[in-house]
Design a protein around this nucleic acid. Sequence first.
DNA 1: CGGTGTGTTGACAGCCATCAAGAGCCGTGG
DNA 2: CCACGGCTCTTGATGGCTGTCAACACACCG
Lengths: 240, 240
Amino acid sequence: MTKPLIRKLEQSDVLSDEEKAVLERSFTRIRDFKADEDIVREGDRPTESCIIVEGFAARYKLLPSGRRQISAIHISGDFVDLHSFLLKTMDHGVVTLSPSRVAFVPHAVLNTISEQHPHLTRLLWLSTLIDAAIHRQWLTTMGRSSAVAQMAHLLCELHVRLNAVGLTNGMSFHFPITQEELGDALGLSTVHVNRVLTELKAGRLVQWAGGGAVTILDWDRLRDIAEFSPTYLSLQNEPR
Amino acid sequence: MTKPLIRKLEQSDVLSDEEKAVLERSFTRIRDFKADEDIVREGDRPTESCIIVEGFAARYKLLPSGRRQISAIHISGDFVDLHSFLLKTMDHGVVTLSPSRVAFVPHAVLNTISEQHPHLTRLLWLSTLIDAAIHRQWLTTMGRSSAVAQMAHLLCELHVRLNAVGLTNGMSFHFPITQEELGDALGLSTVHVNRVLTELKAGRLVQWAGGGAVTILDWDRLRDIAEFSPTYLSLQNEPR
DNA sequence: CGGTGTGTTGACAGCCATCAAGAGCCGTGG
DNA sequence: CCACGGCTCTTGATGGCTGTCAACACACCG
């Protein structure tokens, strides 16, 4: 069940067999979640961290006014709340977007890894740094791009990330999300999300069939609209 | 020169004397920067990381269209590009906002720390996780709050962070930033930043004298407007 | 003293939020 | 089998927050 995680870490550096074995015996609990179910909530103090084995999840914060902002979308292989290992108190929640399989590792085990396996620890650290790099990119597109560019950027990013873990089929991928959730991710209203998608479909840039089957019809134009460049995803394999 | 860093790490957990000594002998180079000078640029592959000893700095990204977004503001004690240690290639730049003193530590030394001092490593890791938590908070206010609330939130956050390292004087603090830079941080135009500040001043919420002398006149109302809660800054001291 | 950077204000436009209503789809239960 | 409710998607009308353009004031500085 750690296959997706290992595949993801191997994008950034070489993992030794021992490191893989350590990971494999660390995840002792697995659980299936339905769609739209909280994995952890803001304010929780979990004693375990978890990875997404299969499915889609989102990090989110709620404002006192009730508005929701999604700050990250996570896919198979993402170490989705490694944060709680050191932050202790969650500053945000994590919710499934689709039915998902989630594997857990006790914080005590992570602590042992950090004491005994420094290189593996650096790779786990790196995975949280990449999360932060994605946050910075989202901040940039939210602050300085139009709604169409934001949506285009999200689709480019997802294609690259899903492709890196083998979850694309050519220019198509599965992305089960409602327009309301997209609005929460992009800081837009549901109505405007719909208009933006209509525009992207009308321009023959993207096809979005029922059930979340997304196809990018014109990558070059979509990338240009989004001003997308994948550097921030750190997909280069080198010693860390 | 590592005093501000140590003081900052000690907010989250206890540091042993040995850990402090390790930090103190790790920073071998120091350099003064003028205001508005790049410390590192996007695309750089630094061989050192650095902390802000004194002054203010900002993380930023540039879009191909030339627009700039500031994704974080850093103050005395912040480990401002620890990221490059593991990301290797910078996905963003760091620029000084004021004349600043910056201390450097070679990546090779950080690597040794990660091999020999797991607890200290976890605290450094934690500091990058807090950076990410701030990113998430900024995403939330950018996506779901008005310009006035965003500005109010930034001022609340800065007061709390500066206060934690002893850089406030009651409700006043020094914050040398132009309105253009504020716009880049909040995703607003310079003109609108000016209007928002005018509104906050008119409401007797904030006083902003020349030279960057900020005073929060009505903390409670400012906090309510911002929907500010400091949990995400992880200022609680506990074993990590 | 002119130039440059920063702050300030007004007019106007446009993107996007809000409100509202209806359509399509699906699971549930009678 | 069909009616129903709930969720999601879609579309139109309206308004407001914020961007853009422009001009000017002011401080600082070479």
